[in-house]
Computed example of a mutant assay.
Amino acid sequence: MTTIYQIDVQITAPVADTEVTDRVADAITNLFPNADPEFRHGELLAETHDMDHFSELLHRFEILDTARSVFFDELAGDTIAFDLKKQAAFEERINFAVGDPAELGDIHVRVRVNEPSAEEFIDHVAPPTEQGKPVDLDG
Protein backbone atom coordinates (compact mmCIF):
# COMPACT_ATOMS: atom_id res chain seq x y z
CA MET A 1 0.00 0.00 0.00
CA THR A 2 1.33 3.41 -0.97
CA THR A 3 1.18 6.12 1.65
CA ILE A 4 -0.14 9.49 0.53
CA TYR A 5 1.83 12.33 2.07
CA GLN A 6 0.05 15.61 2.69
CA ILE A 7 2.49 18.44 3.28
CA ASP A 8 2.60 22.20 3.03
CA VAL A 9 6.04 23.56 2.13
CA GLN A 10 6.70 27.28 2.54
CA ILE A 11 9.91 28.66 1.08
CA THR A 12 11.30 32.14 1.64
CA ALA A 13 14.52 33.72 0.45
CA PRO A 14 15.72 37.28 0.93
CA VAL A 15 16.80 39.08 -2.24
CA ALA A 16 19.59 41.58 -1.64
CA ASP A 17 19.85 44.71 -3.78
CA THR A 18 22.98 43.23 -5.39
CA GLU A 19 21.23 39.98 -6.40
CA VAL A 20 19.23 39.18 -9.52
CA THR A 21 15.74 38.17 -8.40
CA ASP A 22 15.36 35.61 -11.19
CA ARG A 23 18.56 33.82 -10.11
CA VAL A 24 17.25 33.48 -6.55
CA ALA A 25 13.93 32.24 -7.97
CA ASP A 26 15.86 29.70 -10.06
CA ALA A 27 17.68 28.53 -6.92
CA ILE A 28 14.29 27.79 -5.31
CA THR A 29 12.77 26.06 -8.33
CA ASN A 30 15.92 23.98 -8.91
CA LEU A 31 15.19 22.23 -5.61
CA PHE A 32 11.39 22.59 -5.59
CA PRO A 33 10.27 22.59 -9.26
CA ASN A 34 6.55 22.88 -8.42
CA ALA A 35 7.07 26.05 -6.38
CA ASP A 36 6.15 29.38 -7.99
CA PRO A 37 8.19 32.11 -6.28
CA GLU A 38 6.65 35.58 -5.96
CA PHE A 39 8.64 38.68 -5.04
CA ARG A 40 7.28 40.62 -2.06
CA HIS A 41 8.97 43.18 0.17
CA GLY A 42 12.57 42.24 -0.54
CA GLU A 43 12.11 38.47 -0.53
CA LEU A 44 10.77 35.63 -2.60
CA LEU A 45 7.92 33.53 -1.23
CA ALA A 46 6.87 30.18 -2.65
CA GLU A 47 4.72 27.21 -1.71
CA THR A 48 4.56 23.63 -2.87
CA HIS A 49 3.06 20.37 -1.69
CA ASP A 50 5.75 17.91 -2.61
CA MET A 51 9.42 17.31 -1.98
CA ASP A 52 9.96 14.50 -4.47
CA HIS A 53 12.71 16.27 -6.44
CA PHE A 54 14.37 17.40 -3.22
CA SER A 55 14.35 13.78 -2.01
CA GLU A 56 15.81 12.62 -5.35
CA LEU A 57 18.67 15.10 -4.90
CA LEU A 58 19.33 13.86 -1.36
CA HIS A 59 19.64 10.34 -2.78
CA ARG A 60 21.72 11.40 -5.80
CA PHE A 61 24.27 13.30 -3.72
CA GLU A 62 24.20 10.64 -0.97
CA ILE A 63 23.46 13.05 1.87
CA LEU A 64 20.56 11.17 3.44
CA ASP A 65 22.23 10.89 6.86
CA THR A 66 22.98 14.63 6.91
CA ALA A 67 19.41 15.44 5.89
CA ARG A 68 17.94 13.12 8.54
CA SER A 69 20.11 14.73 11.19
CA VAL A 70 19.02 18.24 10.18
CA PHE A 71 15.35 17.25 9.89
CA PHE A 72 15.19 15.54 13.28
CA ASP A 73 17.21 18.34 14.95
CA GLU A 74 14.76 20.92 13.58
CA LEU A 75 11.57 18.91 14.08
CA ALA A 76 8.99 20.66 16.26
CA GLY A 77 5.66 18.82 16.44
CA ASP A 78 4.46 18.41 12.86
CA THR A 79 6.86 20.99 11.41
CA ILE A 80 10.39 20.75 10.07
CA ALA A 81 12.29 23.98 9.35
CA PHE A 82 15.73 24.27 7.79
CA ASP A 83 17.90 26.62 5.76
CA LEU A 84 19.73 26.02 2.50
CA LYS A 85 22.57 27.85 0.77
CA LYS A 86 21.42 29.85 -2.26
CA GLN A 87 24.50 29.30 -4.42
CA ALA A 88 24.35 25.52 -4.05
CA ALA A 89 20.61 25.57 -4.80
CA PHE A 90 21.25 27.64 -7.92
CA GLU A 91 23.50 24.78 -9.08
CA GLU A 92 20.77 22.22 -8.16
CA ARG A 93 22.72 20.96 -5.17
CA ILE A 94 21.65 20.79 -1.54
CA ASN A 95 23.87 22.41 1.07
CA PHE A 96 22.25 22.85 4.47
CA ALA A 97 23.05 26.18 6.10
CA VAL A 98 24.19 25.88 9.70
CA GLY A 99 25.43 28.57 12.03
CA ASP A 100 25.32 32.20 11.00
CA PRO A 101 23.32 33.01 7.86
CA ALA A 102 25.18 33.81 4.65
CA GLU A 103 25.82 37.47 3.89
CA LEU A 104 23.07 37.50 1.27
CA GLY A 105 20.80 35.27 3.33
CA ASP A 106 19.75 31.66 2.99
CA ILE A 107 16.70 29.90 1.62
CA HIS A 108 14.39 29.08 4.52
CA VAL A 109 12.15 26.01 4.15
CA ARG A 110 9.28 25.19 6.50
CA VAL A 111 7.49 21.87 6.03
CA ARG A 112 4.24 21.16 7.84
CA VAL A 113 3.28 17.49 7.66
CA ASN A 114 -0.47 16.86 7.76
CA GLU A 115 -0.46 13.12 6.98
CA PRO A 116 0.85 10.70 8.20
CA SER A 117 3.41 11.86 10.82
CA ALA A 118 6.48 14.05 10.50
CA GLU A 119 8.73 11.14 11.46
CA GLU A 120 7.21 8.90 8.76
CA PHE A 121 7.58 11.69 6.23
CA ILE A 122 11.27 12.13 7.13
CA ASP A 123 11.73 8.38 6.61
CA HIS A 124 10.14 8.80 3.16
CA VAL A 125 12.19 11.83 2.05
CA ALA A 126 15.48 10.78 3.66
CA PRO A 127 15.33 7.12 4.64
CA PRO A 128 17.75 5.70 7.18
CA THR A 129 20.87 4.13 5.72
CA GLU A 130 23.21 1.25 6.40
CA GLN A 131 26.73 1.59 5.01
CA GLY A 132 25.54 4.60 3.01
CA LYS A 133 22.65 2.81 1.27
CA PRO A 134 18.96 3.48 2.01
CA VAL A 135 17.25 0.85 4.14
CA ASP A 136 13.87 -0.43 3.00
CA LEU A 137 11.64 0.18 6.02
CA ASP A 138 8.75 -1.80 4.50
CA GLY A 139 10.80 -4.92 3.79
Rank of each mutant, 00 (worst) to 15 (best):
N30G: 08
K85V: 15
F71S: 00
T18A: 13
P116M: 10
T79F: 07
R110N: 10
H108R: 15
H108F: 14
A97W: 01
A88G: 04
I107A: 04
H108I: 11
E92H: 11
D17N: 07
I28D: 00
T66Y: 09
E119S: 13
V113H: 11
G42L: 06
P128L: 12
L44K: 06
D78N: 15
P14W: 10
V111Y: 02
K85D: 14
E103V: 10
P37D: 09
V15E: 00
L57I: 14
L64I: 07
L84Y: 02
D52K: 07
L75T: 07
N34Q: 14
I80K: 01
D52F: 02
D123T: 11
R60P: 00
E103T: 08
D36P: 04
G99Q: 05
F96N: 03
R68K: 12
F121L: 08
R110A: 05
S69C: 13
V109N: 00
G77R: 14
L31M: 06
G139R: 14
F96L: 01
V135R: 13
M51H: 03
Q10D: 12
A89V: 04
V9T: 09
D17E: 12
A97D: 03
T3C: 07
I11E: 02
G42K: 03
E74I: 01
S69T: 10
R112L: 10
M51K: 01
R60Q: 11
I63S: 04
D22L: 09
D36L: 07
V15N: 03
A16K: 14
H108Q: 13
Q87W: 11
A89D: 04
L104H: 05
F72P: 00
L58I: 10
D136H: 09
A46I: 06
V135A: 11
K85R: 11
A13E: 00
F72Q: 12
T2Q: 11
D36M: 14
E19Y: 06
P37E: 10
F90R: 07
R40Q: 14
D50Y: 06
I80Y: 00
A76M: 10
T18S: 13
A89Q: 06
H53E: 08
